[in-house]
Design a protein around this nucleic acid. Structure first.
Length: 625
RNA sequence: UGGGGCGUAGCCAAGCGGUAAGGCAGCGGGUUUUGGUCCCGCGAUGCGUAGGUUCGAAUCCUGCCGCCCCAGCCA
């Protein structure tokens, strides 16, 4: 059928429709539905790490999810320290967590997504004769338009008093009791998944006695472990988390945030849901292993008869990445046992490690967005993360020439003492990046990999008799090699240049198969360059033979330090953290910790894709180790 | 063998009863003063499996198989 010219105009409106920045997933569906049905007016999420370690790429997924949903639906996301266990936590961790979260979402959120608790501490209110607590005016639209507010995390430990009062209410309702059984006894009496537990003989204490005992627990009258506060639910429940779970334990320990104010501390299940409630969280998103806790989460909120909208807990599958581990405990071991130089070692999957290595926050976010959110167990290939790092850096990183493993190249027909400057483009992907000048002279350094005395098949680079282009400079032809008389190693390559090819153009239109990078020996600046490989040699370091642990698969060659690398002179004043593409090699950034003026250290962020390496591997012609 | 989840390509992941999106990886080709980038092309007659319902099933039902999580006074 023939379409009339004017009849095609109606799709225009749909054509301009923008695809949403975030892709759809089952959690966003739930949020949308709650919004649509009016169950909530504004979405409030939270990212609740325990400050007992550094954040890693798995947390990044959760941060992107929680902050991403808040951003997408015009809501709020709170960074909350889930700090209810004083013996494991430290301010070092709250500081690093805060820094890392800010770094990850910086420039993404055009406002202060719920990082600041505007109202301060929780406030009390009378509702139906009982006390209720919430954070007044947490976020606020004002904060959203005020980019200057200090970004401060929330703390579950700021709610210890309200939490304590809720516990009292639970006791008054006859839904919690003080139990004197020892940890071993409680263990014994819990039963097993397929066998019901046994009720505590303290289960039927009077409300008065429970109140008295619990208050005395708080007053510090009992030693650690002597008593606990337990929920009175059902020792026969098939879900073991419903078998009268412990709500409070005694710990005479200083807390990083509350000091010595408390000697009883709430357990996760009690503190978490109520902290969510206090903050007005609408969607409490966590990982799959908490799915079995959900009935308890809901039981607590319902048992207390809380008047405001209850938060909803929903679960998603945690991220796993090949060649790495995600457990904080194991990462801690890597640090403590000295397998890495610290939490921010560029080989670590931590956010601080990735930052130091040069991964842009935008790339990490793009990765988190791409992997999606679902409930099935997954193991994402490291290559995907690297893809987004390259994709981002390719567009943004200025190019530079750097020779990592220098080999002298002497141009026999180039006048001794002569220096030329060539103008070269800073970033072919970004016309606005401008150009710079690179000095050229008779003695240069080229990459050892770019010369082979006997070239294998398909080798396009320099070898005797072959002509290649020196990027932005001249075409040169190899005439000879100089070898170390003892070892036979090639220590210098001799060549001639064609003066007619100035700038790299060929007036006669002839082609060369390779363009290689170079640095003028007399002008080069020296640097240390650190090359990184995966920390582990196997895709799943957790999946290791019986009797061994994950350290068995540590990669002994995960770090290679190169000294005496030769960089083009423009790099002399590279700023800490600055990222470059060293042409034909990869992306590198100035190490922000170890670089000093006059002593540059670069980290290799990621290599460029290397088609030649692939060919060579297939051919089996790769050189020495 | 109790309870809770999950099975779509090598790795992620859409799909929500109307005839298998997309990305990464891989392979082939083109452009190229980075063996980079960019561009073009190629992959499931099939959705763990066996039945059933239906005009029609990855989507609904049933059985089976497989994998993950839960018995901390950790989170």
């Amino acid at each position: 059928m023939t379409a009339a010219p004017g009849a095609m105009s109606e799709p225009d409106a749909t054509r301009v429709q923008q695809e949403p920045a975030e892709r759809q997933d089952f959690l966003r569906e739930i949020v949308q539905q709650d919004l649509a049905e009016g169950r909530i007016q504004q979405v409030v999420t939270r990212f609740p790490p325990e400050p007992n370690g550094y954040l890693h790429i798995g947390h990044a997924k959760s941060i992107c999810l929680n902050f991403g949903i808040a951003r997408q639906y015009g809501g709020q996301c709170n960074l909350r320290m889930d700090d209810t266990n004083p013996t494991k936590e430290d301010v070092e961790y709250v500081d690093s967590i805060t820094t890392d979260v800010k770094w990850l979402i910086d420039g993404w959120a055009d406002h202060c997504l719920g990082l600041k608790p505007v109202g301060g501490v929780a406030r009390v209110q009378q509702v139906n004769g009982a006390e209720d607590f919430h954070l007044p005016g947490v976020m606020p639209a004002e904060a959203a338009v005020c980019p200057d507010v200090a970004l401060e995390p929330f703390y579950a430990s700021d709610y210890f008093e309200p939490l304590y009062r809720y516990a009292l209410q639970l006791i008054e309702k006859g839904k919690a009791f003080v139990c004197d059984h020892t940890p071993a006894e409680v263990d014994e009496m819990r039963g097993a998944p397929d066998r019901p537990g046994q009720e505590s003989r303290y289960r039927d204490r009077s409300v008065e006695e429970n109140l008295d005992l619990f208050q005395r627990m708080r007053a510090g009258e009992f030693p650690d472990g002597a008593r606990t506060l337990r929920a009175k639910i059902d020792m026969g429940a098939p879900n073991v988390w419903l078998r009268d779970p412990v709500l409070y334990r005694i710990r005479h320990a200083s807390h990083h945030h509350t000091g010595d104010d408390w000697c009883i501390y709430p357990m996760y299940d009690f503190a978490h849901g109520l902290s969510d409630y206090i903050e007005g969280i609408t969607h409490s998103i966590c990982t799959l292993e908490f799915e079995v806790h959900r009935p308890l989460y809901e039981w607590i909120l319902e048992a207390l008869d809380l008047p405001r909208v209850h938060p909803r807990q929903r679960e998603f599958a945690r991220l796993n990445v090949t060649y790495t581990i995600m457990s904080k405990r194991k990462l801690l071991r890597l640090v403590q046992e000295g397998h890495v130089r610290g939490w921010d070692d560029p080989r670590m999957p931590t956010i601080s490690g990735m930052r130091r290595r040069g991964y842009p926050a935008e790339a990490v976010r793009a990765f988190c967005d791409r992997i999606g959110v679902a409930k099935r167990e997954n193991m994402v290939e490291l290559g995907l993360l690297e893809h987004f790092v390259r994709d981002d850096l390719n567009r943004r990183a200025p190019r530079a020439m750097a020779v990592l493993r220098p080999l002298r190249l002497v141009l026999e027909n180039y006048p001794e003492g002569q220096v030329e400057e060539f103008e070269t483009v800073n970033n072919p992907e970004d016309a606005g990046a401008g150009t710079r000048k690179v000095p050229f002279s008779r003695v240069l350094y080229i990459e050892r990999d770019d010369f082979r005395e006997v070239p294998p098949p398909k080798y396009h680079r320099l070898s005797p008799g072959v002509e290649v282009r020196l990027r932005s400079a001249y075409l040169v032809t190899c005439t000879d090699v100089v070898k170390d008389p003892d070892t036979g190693e090639v220590v210098e390559v001799r060549a001639t240049y064609d003066p007619a090819t100035r700038g790299g153009d060929t007036p006669d239109g002839r082609k060369v198969k390779a363009t290689i990078h170079w640095v003028s020996a007399a002008h080069a600046v020296d640097a240390e360059v650190r090359l990184y490989d995966t920390l582990f040699t196997v895709e799943n370091p957790d999946d290791v033979p019986e009797g061994q642990d994950f350290t068995a698969t540590l990669n002994p060659a995960s770090l290679e330090v190169l000294r005496g690398c030769k960089l083009e002179p423009s790099l002399a004043e590279a700023a800490p953290g600055a990222r470059y593409q060293f042409e034909r090699l990869g992306y590198f950034c100035v190490d922000a910790e170890d670089s000093r003026p006059g002593a540059l250290v670069f980290n290799r962020t990621v290599t460029l894709k290397d088609a030649w390496a692939k060919i060579e591997k297939k051919q089996g012609t790769a050189p020495r180790p």
